[in-house]
Design a protein around this nucleic acid. Structure first.
Length: 379
DNA sequence: CAGGTCGGACCGTAAACTTG
DNA sequence: AAGTTTACGGTCCGACCTGC
């Protein structure tokens, strides 16, 4: 999913890092929407009555009305957008907003690109990171050293280290058979699975905003990055062909269906505002209509315990697996394809190291945990 | 600094299931 | 049977460790 920024080589540099939890009440100077303009009043004028929608994408405008009007506000990375690159416990590439139940908010996907579901977006490698390619079978030397191998025999690495003689394929173990599995979860088949409220999203919201916010009244809606603007709403082109900037951020285009105003959902009468999050009092906004008491929210959906487990969106710090080159630096042959053993560690095979996990390590080293990731892959 | 070690993310795909 | 989902078994990135 990439509405690739026009200039940056790294999308993550263009969109600002999400500073904190996607708390709709939390707003910083940077997070604020741009000043309203006559064409784009604040809050935006909703020409349609609030509507519940959970069907096909994009949601059709009400009969007899024009397509959704564009509105503009700062790009993801603010408090209402949750995780960039898996920060804040959200999947990488996903943006989060809060909306009333049933309202599906999306914007048109970039030209020629299909809508990608949140889960798919979370799974997909980012545009800046090509998928790692693996050989079918590494030679025994490379496998033992956990180093990149190639299809040739002797492989490049073995040649480099003068152990070409030992460059042979290993023996692949046969797969276990007869492993019983539970019932399969079928994916939504509609081509684009609309982001619905489920235990996973509930858990994410609960983690970020507190359990109250996880109630169905505050559904997190994930959607792909919107396209960047080429001109301001006033028609001014951006500098050097780049998107115009607002508050130092490239301007994006959002389409906002009636009934959901992403940046400040609690200003809409339909919303039942969540209790103030500690340390993040809801800032008043000029021109904001009074908050009308909403009907009592329905009880939160029960969260299946097993799903609880899998929903651990806060990845402990998956490394940025940018591949590419297999730089030979630090590479080393493993003599005779022997399984290593480290005397002091009683190593046999891949014994656990007595050092912080790589995740913790990265954290300690100040490497940002990127790409909040999927469920713990292997059992 | 170069080479050795290895945790764990990532990948490919076989096997288990589901669907038509 | 064909398609889908799951998870096994493997690859290899990249950080740490060690010895020269």
């Amino acid at each position: 999913m990439s509405s690739s920024p026009p200039t940056s080589s790294s999308p993550t540099t263009l969109s600002s890092p999400g500073p904190s939890a996607p708390n709709p009440n939390a707003m910083t100077e940077q997070n604020k929407a741009p000043a309203p303009s006559p064409e784009h009043p604040y809050p935006p004028v909703m020409p349609y009555p609030p509507q519940a929608y959970s069907g096909a994408y994009p949601p059709p405008p009400p009969p007899g009305t024009a397509p959704y009007p564009p509105y503009f506000y700062p790009p993801p990375g603010d408090a209402n957008h949750g995780g960039e690159n898996g920060q804040n416990g959200l999947p990488p590439g996903a943006y989060m907003m809060l909306a009333p139940p049933g309202v599906v908010y999306m914007h048109p996907p970039p030209q020629g690109q299909p809508f990608q579901s949140p889960s798919a977006a979370a799974q997909a490698p980012s545009a800046s990171r090509p998928k790692r390619k693996q050989v079918k079978m590494a030679c025994t030397n490379c496998a033992a050293a956990c180093k990149r191998c190639d299809e040739n025999r002797p492989c490049e690495r073995c040649q480099k280290y003068g152990i070409a003689d030992n460059c042979i394929d290993g023996q692949r173990k046969e797969r276990k058979k007869g492993i019983k599995r539970g019932p399969y979860k079928r994916k939504n088949k509609g081509g684009s699975d609309s982001p619905g409220y489920n235990a996973a999203t509930a858990a994410i919201v609960a983690a970020q905003l507190g359990p109250e916010a996880a109630a169905p009244y505050y559904q997190p809606i994930f959607y792909p990055p919107p396209p960047y603007m080429t001109h301001t709403p006033e028609g001014q082109p951006g500098p050097d062909g780049q998107p115009p900037h607002v508050n130092g951020q490239p301007m994006m285009q959002y389409y906002i269906p009636a009934g959901s105003y992403p940046p400040y959902p609690h200003y809409h009468p339909m919303y039942h505002p969540p209790p103030p999050h500690p340390g993040a009092p809801p800032p008043p906004h000029p021109g904001a209509p009074p908050v009308v008491a909403a009907p009592p929210p329905p009880p939160p959906p029960p969260v299946a315990p097993e799903q609880h487990q899998t929903v651990n969106p806060v990845d402990t710090g998956k490394k940025d697996d940018v591949n590419g080159d297999a730089n030979g630096v630090g590479d080393s042959p493993v003599a005779n394809g022997k399984k290593r053993s480290r005397s002091s560690k009683g190593g046999e095979g891949k014994s656990k190291r007595s050092k912080p996990s790589s995740g913790a390590r990265r954290e300690r080293d100040g490497v940002a945990a990127e790409e909040g990731h999927e469920e713990g892959a292997t059992a």
